[in-house]
Design a protein around this nucleic acid. Sequence first.
RNA 1: CGGGGAUUGGCGCAAUUGGCUAGCGUGCACGGUUUGGGACCGUGAGGUUGCAGGUUCGAAUCCUGUAUCCCCGACCA
Length: 473
Amino acid sequence: MSKKFIKTKSEDLSQWYNDLVVKSELADYAPVKGCMIIRPYGYAIWEGIQSYMDKFIKEKGVQNAYFPIFIPESFLKKEKEHVKGFAPELAVVTIGGGQELTEKLVIRPTSETIMYEMYKKWTQSWRDLPVLMNQWCNVVRWEKRTYLFLRTSEFLWQEGHCAHIDDQENQEMVSWALDLYKKTYNDLLAIYGITGVKSESEKFAGASKTYTIETLMPNGKALQSATSHNLGQKFSKSFEWSVQDKNGDKLYPYQNSWGLSTRSIGALIMVHGDDNGLVFPPQIAPTQIVIVPIPNHSKAVKLSNTLFDNLKTNYRCQIDEVEGESAGFKFNKWEMKGVPVRIEIGDKEAEIDSVVIVRRDTLEKQTVKITDLNKTIDQLLIDIQSNLLEKHKKFTQDNTFSVDSYDEFKKIMSTTRGFVLSHWCESAECEAKIKEETKAATRCLPTNQKEEDGVCIYCGKKSTHRWLFAQSY
RNA sequence: CGGGGAUUGGCGCAAUUGGCUAGCGUGCACGGUUUGGGACCGUGAGGUUGCAGGUUCGAAUCCUGUAUCCCCGACCA
């Protein structure tokens, strides 16, 4: 670990981010282009996200399963828009066991096609619906420009794939997944986001509707943070997948798919981190509390171990007894690692049955009696969690602008950036022109965005809603 | 994929016009003194200069190819 960072967060966000990810040991570059290694500290974050979400997924009756990483090329071609959307970023296996394959195998960029082929085999009757399945896996998308966590050639995610008897039930599932994502971002990661529906040109290849949660990064760019797709009957019809309904007629199942990836870890780092390093919300922090006994303070060491035994039963707690590091060095180390609460104990404190507690988000210190320790920590963890969410919510709101003039729109996108709410006539032409001229595109039509008469910011035609625009990652 | 920059002990960098045994900081190991916001002294280990060719008496330095990373675009979720 070298001293401080080369660049501060405000000076150069990209440099700061890359530096921090590597130095804090969350991840490292792999010897393969565009790929990364998620190191134990980073993987612990992913495991936290998994266990949080998996509980809700199972409660909903969705079961985990696993499908192959290889997809026969012909499967992908069955849904026209789907293959068109993914073709440019596929990795394809052409040789197996030294022999040219008769049919090329695509390394999954997403698993709709291979899963639905199997669903087709497993269902004959309306009684076999719904099919509720999810898988935690890796996918590969050959991105031209990659970025640690936020866009890598290979990434980890969960993909839920369900099929229903009618559109109402289907849409209910789509909304449920979007809610799950919102909850995960808000409650677990302390990140505020805007949910809504994607425009026609921005939706998932093969979906009839795509719902998204968009979060705002410190540089004013939006990050598409998770998506939930209503696939309608597009895939079931393309795959000729039907079951018999109650009347014995053909019923093409209504389908949905939804995913959240390791990209969320990138958002976590960017949103909360500061010039001293990572800042993790207590709910997701792999270590919530670190105890640092001041080296060579004998009473402090004893007390520290007593407290550690007590705290580790209720919290993810760690004690730092590494020899040869000064107290100051340890303080800086744990700040960089983003541990929410640090307990410093020297003989001075031990003598009066107290400890010093430092919260990572504000770096405030307080001296606390040991008898009040548990109570104080409970409250502190809650406070840090909500403070981080509030801070990001405020940042997002402070950088969301209602804009009615295209000049102002352009000005914002060329300076501070951020979220812009503007009227749009919903024509693909205007959307494309706006993107070309400002680099900003529609992110979504926010949920519950009120109907409001207005005119398209580009062409002046009638518009009924303000859409959310932003430049994106 | 287009434009620009980079690649030298683990990490960050230096090495004049092509010229001596490729240096420095940090980290690492060992010993000692330290330890309340990134301690200090001493000793030591660690390099076929990204890779493959070429030019030359001589290449980290010049040429060709190639790989990877970063930045800006196009693409994309």
